[in-house]
Design a protein around this nucleic acid. Structure first.
Length: 786
DNA sequence: ATGCCTCGAGTTCA
DNA sequence: CTCGAGGCAT
């Protein structure tokens, strides 16, 4: 380090250093144009500290070295605000903004007045007092009349000047503004806190508030706080500007940071445009805001309008819908899904989150409840995850009422009373009632009727429940037996039961219309495709994709409904687990009966497929033996076994010593014989052989050649909203060209089609360098090949 | 065994 | 959308 010989006195050098440090602060925090490197800044500060240590008489209270005091104060003293700190009226709708401005126009007899507009920072309002240009006291807003003296903590915030710049400031000056924690600093702080075990902050606002209320300013000094000024309090004895916008300019000259987003806007239209403009950048701003503030720019007009209570008539806070809200848990219920999955759900006191009223939030599973330790009566923070689904973010522990207990999954289904069981290693607990459980039955029928399944329009969950409870529909097959008279009777009985008696002619007509439409929708659904039908059955692990795979590989319902699981495994993406689930479904006599009834009631599969020629290569005994999952029988051993014993009879009867002499290792042979000893296994083998033969003959007439499709082997992901096609249409067209349409982007994705408002998938594609098409390119591509 | 990558299943409100 | 878990490549 260079050490300059002081030509000047220490006092002069100290003054010079202070000026340079103050200037660097001003340029960084107010002008937003850093001029010196951090290292240089630190060097200046250390030199000043050294001088002040050597000459204690030179240390002044407004020296930049004096930001961090070192003695924790006892408690915060009360400070009475000479001019009360305002609370602003709130507006959530455009209409409320119009009302606000109409009142101003009427009282002042003006048209389209000019407003000073600014973001409403989500931080902590404070007031700063300067006497003779030196910061002497800072206080929180408190109740507006009286706040707490947090001077020592505020001194640590470098964005707050300890000494005013320029000369035209009043002898006594109070400035109002917001202390906040920039988002990036908040994230960085928390990341470090998590890593090093420090205090993790809940959100930037709480971070700022908590930091200012530290009794030890040394702790505050470590927190990344910032400050924006937005108003004047006391300002005695100088000529002040006539408008609010000019005042802000003045504050900036005096050394206060003022947000670059402040602007002026004319009339309601200008204000609403500003609201929209700031709203659009809200997510990308470096700090949190919860709205914007409109203030009548003309200060004389402000004085004329005055206050209602403590709220000025000349200012308004226009708020954005809150993305996170606090509410209380009234109950934790368990919902039973189609598969019996018992999902805990928090019933919440209604609260507005992101513009909608939220009353329920899923808690996913018992582990999640335990992780959050949510209890009935708790106050919780709720957020809309991915802008849609409400979720409980965390509990506010300080607001927990006494005598609560951790929540536990009930032992019995709240609907049917069957045991709720959680399998080893599974996250979800399930009701074991299966189809005896009304909830499972309702959800199963709902799934059957879903748009992507049998597509029965107008069959809502409530009607399914009534149809089930009143005994009209016990299984999905019963839907096709319903008559108009049944539906009307059911509706009448349901109304009776609920005590609603809309016996008016009009209600009767509505009910008739509903019933007619439903009968029509059910009739319409009779004609369907194999993949929809399979999907509608609601077989565990069989969603749309697997249903489609089954349909294209095997072609016929009659084949599929009798397939043993080792043959189901021939389909790519179907492994042992899924295959056994499908097999188990069709092994249930009740399920087969329902399928028979559906077919008897006229359900017809309209697109007869032939088995896929790709199946042919897999229809050999070796593959079958591999898929049987016989212990120790690897692919290689299975092939070996198949070359010598290719018939069912051979495999059932060949003695162990012959297996060994055929070259099979002794332990493998023994394992096979042991496996074969079980009736169920022999039966499985027999079923498999029979089906193998049936498939072979079904394939006999199928031609081998399939035309190559332009997108064969490509994986495409759709994201955002397309304007000329629905997502389903686009998917269908791409699939018709041989593409596989996947739901998420990975490095195997061939290209991503991004529509309007594309979200995280587009980001991911860019990150992975995956090709991105816009809608126009897709349409062009499709048009060229149709 | 381990680590992608997909698929399935459940979810809220207007 | 998110999470869990099945399938499969390594």
């Amino acid at each position: 380090m260079t050490h300059r010989t002081p030509e000047t006195s220490p006092a002069a050098r100290a003054a010079d250093l202070r000026a340079r440090i103050d200037d660097a602060n001003y340029r960084y925090y107010v002008l937003d144009e850093p001029t010196i490197a951090d290292i240089e800044y630190d060097r200046l500060l250390r030199e000043l500290e050294a001088i002040e240590a050597a000459h204690p008489e030179l240390a002044t209270p407004d020296s930049p070295t004096q930001r961090v005091g070192n003695k924790p104060s006892g408690a915060f003293a009360e400070v009475r605000h000479e001019i009360p700190m305002l609370s602003l009226g709130n507006a959530f709708t455009d209409a409320e903004v119009e009302d606000f401005e109409r009142r101003i126009e009427q009282r002042l007899e003006v048209r389209d007045p000019l407003f000073s507009v600014e973001p409403k920072f989500d931080g902590l309002a404070i007031s700063l007092r300067y006497e003779d240009g030196v910061f002497v006291r800072g206080a929180t807003r408190g109740d507006g009349e009286t706040g707490e003296d947090v001077t020592a903590n505020l001194r640590t915030i470098k964005a707050i000047p300890l000494r005013l710049r320029g000369h035209d400031w009043p002898a006594v000056l109070e400035v109002r503004g917001e202390v906040y924690m920039p988002r990036a600093a908040f994230e960085a702080w928390n990341e470090r806190a998590r890593r090093e075990g420090g205090k993790v902050l809940a959100n930037p606002r709480n971070g700022a508030a908590g930091s200012l209320r530290q009794l030890d300013p040394r702790i505050t000094a470590e927190r990344p706080l910032a400050f924006y000024a937005y108003a004047l309090g006391v300002a005695a004895g100088v000529h002040l500007p006539a408008t609010h916008s000019a005042t802000l300019k003045k504050l900036r000259e005096w050394g206060f940071p003022v947000s670059a987003l402040v602007d002026t806007a004319r009339g309601t239209a200008g204000c609403l445009a500003y609201f929209a403009r700031i709203g659009a950048m809200r997510d990308t701003l470096p700090f949190d805001i919860d709205g914007v503030v409109y203030k009548l720019d003309d200060l004389a007009g402000q004085r004329e309008l005055g206050f209602v209570g403590r709220t000025p008539r000349w200012a308004l806070a226009h708020k954005y819908p809150a993305q996170e809200q606090q509410t209380t848990v009234e109950a934790i219920d368990v919902q039973i899904g189609r598969t019996g999955a018992a999902t805990p759900t928090a019933r919440l006191a209604p609260v507005q989150v992101g513009g909608v009223t939220v009353t329920n939030a899923t808690l996913h599973n018992a582990d999640q409840v335990a992780r959050l330790d949510v209890r009935v009566g708790d106050t919780v923070i709720v957020r809309r995850a991915g802008d849609v689904i409400p979720e409980v973010v965390r509990v506010v522990p300080d607001l927990r009422p006494p005598h609560t207990h951790p929540w536990q999954m009930p032992a019995h289904c709240p609907i049917c009373g069957s045991d709720i069981v959680r399998e080893e290693g599974e996250v979800v607990a399930r009701c074991t009632g299966e189809l005896t459980c009304a909830a499972q039955r309702t959800r199963a029928i709902f799934h059957f009727a879903a748009r992507r399944a049998m597509d029965i329009d107008g069959l809502g969950e409530r009607y399914i429940e009534d149809l089930g409870d009143l005994g009209y529909v016990r299984s999905v097959a019963d839907l096709y037996k319903l008559t108009l008279a049944d539906l009307l009777e059911m509706k009448r009985r349901a109304d009776e039961r609920d005590g609603t008696t809309p016996e008016t002619v009009k209600a009767g007509k509505v009910a008739t219309k509903w019933a007619e439409n439903l009968i029509e929708a059910i009739a319409h659904s009779r004609r369907t495709t194999l993949e929809r039908f399979l999907y509608a059955l609601g077989i565990t692990h069989v969603g749309e994709s697997t249903a489609k795979a089954l349909a294209t590989w095997f072609g016929q319902l009659e084949t599929i409904r009798h397939l043993p699981w080792p043959l189901l495994k021939l389909v790519p993406d179907i492994g042992g687990e899924v295959a056994r689930a499908i097999d188990a479904f069709f092994q249930q006599a009740g399920n087969q009966r329902v399928i028979d009834q559906l077919l008897a009631h006229g359900v017809e599969i309209a697109d007869p497929h032939v088995p896929s020629p790709k199946l042919r290569a897999a229809l050999d005994v070796a593959t079958l033996l591999t898929n049987l999952e016989v212990p120790k029988l690897t692919e290689k051993r299975a092939a070996q076994l198949a070359t010598h014993f290719a018939t069912l009879d051979d495999l059932l009867k060949v003695p162990e010593h012959q297996l060994v002499s055929a070259g099979l290792p002794a332990d493998t042979a023994a394992a096979f014989v042991a496996w074969r000893a079980e009736d169920a296994h022999r039966h499985l083998l027999q079923r498999s052989f029979e089906t193998l033969d049936a498939l072979r003959s079904a394939l006999a007439g199928v031609s081998e050649t399939t035309a190559a499709l332009p997108l064969e082997g490509q994986t495409v992901v759709l994201t955002g909203t397309l304007s000329t096609l629905t997502r389903d249409e686009a998917k269908a067209k791409l699939e018709a060209l041989g593409a596989k349409v996947a739901g998420s982007v990975s490095k195997k994705t061939s290209f991503v089609v991004a529509g309007e408002a594309a979200g995280s998938k587009l980001d991911k594609a860019q990150e992975l360098g995956v090709e991105i098409w816009d809608e126009a390119r897709l349409l062009e591509f499709l048009a060229a090949r149709e």
